[in-house]
């Protein structure tokens, strides 16, 4: 179980693979992952960059709590959450969630639950750079 906040570019599939190498070979039959990355548009406007702010002590606490809650609901062998902060460019990965389990349902359902919970509750905030200036994103899309 691991959660990380990263303030520079990361390669999500490399991290996923590295983490999987730490698991006991043959112990898992399913890996589900979600990778969220930055679009170059939002609400019909172009977006050239983004600043991602967070509440460091609370994000660390909250991501650990989400992982524990996921493990109480599904028989997961392991899970990984990585979230980016700082200056972000279009196409940069923002978030990685990986879930490993013996069978597919637990990994798939836990992964979907984790990203929705993270988006609704974890204390991160995006500030977009648009042609007409900077703007705080006011809310996340609900389940899109």
């Amino acid at each position: 179980m691991s959660s990380q906040i990263i303030d520079c570019h990361f390669e999500p599939y490399q991290l996923l693979n590295e983490h999987q190498q730490t698991l006991q070979a043959g112990s898992f039959g399913a890996c589900a992952c979600f990778v969220g990355s930055m679009r170059d548009f939002n609400d019909n406007a172009s977006v050239s960059g983004m600043q991602l702010e967070h509440y460091p002590q609370m994000t660390a606490h909250y991501l650990d709590k989400l992982e524990q809650q996921a493990r109480q609901q599904w028989p997961l062998l392991d899970c990984l959450i990585v979230h980016r902060v700082g200056a972000i460019a279009p196409n940069d990965p923002i978030v990685l969630i990986g879930c490993w389990s013996a069978h597919r349902r637990a990994a798939l359902e836990a992964c979907a639950w984790l990203i929705e919970e993270l988006k609704q509750r974890a204390p991160f905030w995006k500030k977009e750079t648009r042609p007409d200036g900077e703007r705080w994103v006011e809310s996340n899309t609900d389940g899109h």
Partner: peptide, 26 residues
């Protein structure tokens, strides 16, 4: 103290209170 609370929640000495807008991570 890093947990969501209501505006009318009681505060005691040594607490950390944070105010922020709706979250937009992920």
């Amino acid at each position: 103290n890093l947990e969501y609370a209501d505006f009318d929640a009681k505060i005691t000495a040594g607490d950390e209170v944070a105010f922020f807008p709706p979250v937009t991570g992920g």
